[in-house]
Every structure is written in structure tokens, then in C-alpha cells.
Simulated assay, not measured.
Amino acid sequence: MAQHAKYSKVNPQWEEFVRSQPTLSNFRTSDDHIIQRRAAFQKIAAEGPQYRPIPGDSEVTIRNFTVPARDGYQIPVRSYFPKQSSSSTCPLFVYYHGGGWTFGDIETGDDNCRLLCLHNQLCVLNIDYRLAPKHVFPTGINDAYDAFKWAAQNAHSISADPAKGFLVGGVSAGGNMAGVIAYLARDDKIDPSITGLLLSIPCCLMPQAFDRLPQWKDELLSIELNKHSDMLDVRSYNQLIQDILKAPPEDPKISFLLNPDHTKLPLRAYFQIAGLDPIRDEALLFARLLREHSGSKTLVHLYDGLPHGFWRFQELPAARSWAGDLYEGTQFLLNGGQDGLVVKGYGQPDAQSNAGRDVSKVA
């Protein structure tokens, strides 16, 4: 909606950070391939400060093993269980790392999985799905869903109890997979059912498929407003989908908003959405569809004027609070609480906190 256009105003802290990083500044006028860009982002993040204390093996029980994919491939997975848990079982969270379907592995999500496990007393299963370009669509999502189904059927083997909570989530491409799986699990009547979705900067609808949903044209403005965003620009995003992943944009197994039925989806969902992200509005639309069609409660943290993946750079005040927001959102999925849209301003002069507001009125 047009009211969200104000979140496309670049946050001063991001502008200051870009000025301090010549590599990021140069991207604004370059035609570098998305692979080169992502490698540069990872290098900048790795060389910057690392603020989050990560739980070690003395606090979290770690197991590495494999589960079978439909084609016989053994999918590497890693489970996490809090050693100081007051119970022999914990709620289950199936986690998918980000990386644009082309980067990342089981180590990419390791920090988040350890933190979620310890701080939220969760049993977490981290999925190392196969990546493009070696493994093009739909291999990655098939791995993700096969591992999810294994978890639903074998939760007891990793000391998880889905009756206490069955969460699915991830970051960026991982958030896309979690959204796709919500529909697949519903249609396949997977038991136990998913109780909550965690969607951090999720991809919900490929740009090339926007014309298939003309009824929502007026709600999907960020793809144009933020098309030159620093971390994810639309040109390279299209390049990724068409040339590297080779995913048909009209396939609901990647553009999950194309599903015609949005009923009977999980009853709680937590979103982290970046205001300067081209894919901002599709995530806000999905939150609305969950509320209106499935009666879901949604908590949305919207980061005003910040781009896709900003949290990688721990120099930013907003990045340092991102993990805390993640814990809060996960607690909402497990225990309920106040839903709504919370705008995170972080120095943006016209940003206001909307904690506790009815998100259906603003998103």
C-alpha cells in the first residue's frame, strides 16, 4: 500500500555505513553479477565486529546426521538441544538458512540455531538443502520439504515434542522455503501440523509473476520503489531466479502467494521486514492474507529505511537488536502475546513505534 512508501526513505545510519564502505558505494553504479556482490557483502560482514555471544557446545547438545531425500540423496542436518532444559523434550523448530538459494550451508545458520535453542528453549533442526547452480529448482525446496516431513515423523529421535510447538522458519530464501512448506504441509495434511511461521525478510512472490496477481497491484509497490536497493536490487534478483536457480516464477513452490487458497495455514506468524527491501510489500501482503483467510495472529517488526540483510553488519545499531527481536518473535510463536506492527526507526526522524496496534489496519 502507498502508506508503506515512507519506509523506503534511506535510514541515516545505513547511509552513513555505506559511505564508510567503498565497496558498497561502488555497487550503486556498477553492473557486478549478484555472485560478486554477495561475496563482497560476506567479506564486509566477516571483517566487521561480531557482537553476539554464541553459545558453545557446553551449553547446547549438537548432533550431525543425515536424512533421506526423495531421490536417495542424504541431506545433512544438525540438531540443537539446550543442555539446561528443565524437560526431556522441547518444542521443535525446523530452520532454513538464507543465501539466495545459491550460497550458505549448515554453518550459515549455526549461530542463529544455537541462539534460538538456548534462549527460547527449543530443539532446532538446521537443514543443509542443496544449492544452485549445481542443483537447480526444485531440488532445494524438495530437500527442505523432505527434511521437514522427516522431522514431523521422527521428532522424538531428537528430543523434540511438536505438541509443545512446531515452528518452521528461515531467513530470505529460507523464509521463502518456510512459506512454501506451510502450503505443502497443509495440502498434504501433515500431522502434526505447523503451529508457527518465522519469516525473516522472506521472498514470497517472484517479480516476474506479479502480473498474475493484478488484484494486489496497488499493494506491491516496493518492487519499484526499492528496485535499486543496495543489498538486493531487482535486476540482480531477476538474474538470480532466471539464470542461476532456473525456477519458473509462476510455480507456487517458489512464488507461494500464487496459491489460490490461503486458509488453514499456521495460526501464528512472526515477520522481520526491511523497509528498503524490494520484497517488503509482498511480505506485508502475506501477513494480511494469513490474518484474513486463516485467522492467524501476526507480529511484524518492520525496519524503517534499511535494506535486505542489513543485520549482517553488526556496526549498525539496528543489526545489534535484530537477534533480540528474533527471540521476541519466537516467544510470540510459542506463547502468544501482543500482535501487531512494530516499526523500528533507529534514528529515522519520522519513524514511530506502533507496538500493540492492530496490524490489519496498517499492513
Rank of each mutant, 00 (worst) to 15 (best):
G100L: 05
G100I: 04
W101R: 02
W101L: 13
W101A: 03
F103K: 04
F103M: 04
G104Q: 10
G104I: 12
D105C: 13
D105F: 13
D105R: 09
I106K: 14
I106V: 15
E107Q: 15
E107S: 15
T108S: 15
T108G: 05
T108W: 08
T108E: 07
G109A: 13
G109L: 07
D110P: 12
D110Q: 12
D110A: 05
D111Q: 13
N112H: 11
C113A: 13
R114I: 09
L116V: 00
L116C: 09
C117K: 01
C117E: 01
C117M: 03
C117A: 06
C117R: 01
L118R: 14
L118H: 13
L118Y: 07
H119S: 12
H119N: 14
N120S: 15
Q121I: 01
L122M: 10
V124R: 02
V124I: 12
V124G: 02
L125S: 06
L125M: 15
L125F: 11
N126F: 02
I127M: 08
I127C: 05
D128T: 01
D128A: 13
Y129C: 03
Y129T: 03
Y129I: 05
A132D: 09
A132H: 10
P133C: 13
P133L: 14
H135P: 02
T139M: 07
T139L: 01
T139H: 04
I141S: 04
I141A: 04
N142Q: 14
D143H: 08
Y145D: 02
A147S: 14
A147H: 05
F148R: 01
F148N: 06
F148V: 05
K149C: 15
K149A: 08
K149T: 15
W150I: 04
A151D: 04
A151R: 00
Q153S: 14
Q153I: 00
Q153F: 00
N154Q: 10
N154G: 06
N154S: 09
A155D: 08
A155N: 08
A155E: 07
H156V: 07
H156N: 11
H156A: 15
S157Q: 14
I158S: 02
S159G: 00
S159Y: 05
S159D: 05
A160W: 06
D161L: 00
D161S: 09
P162I: 00
P162N: 10
P162L: 01
A163W: 00
K164E: 11
F166Y: 14
F166S: 06
F166T: 10
L167E: 03
L167D: 02
G170R: 06
G170T: 08
G170H: 06
V171A: 02
V171M: 07
A173F: 05
G174S: 09
G174P: 11
G175Y: 04
G175H: 03
A178E: 12
G179I: 04
G179K: 03
V180N: 06
V180T: 10
V180A: 06
I181P: 08
I181K: 12
I181M: 14
I181Q: 08
A182M: 06
A182W: 08
Y183W: 14
L184T: 12
A185W: 03
A185I: 09
A185S: 15
R186C: 10
R186I: 09
R186A: 08
D187Y: 10
D187V: 09
D187R: 10
D188F: 10
D188G: 01
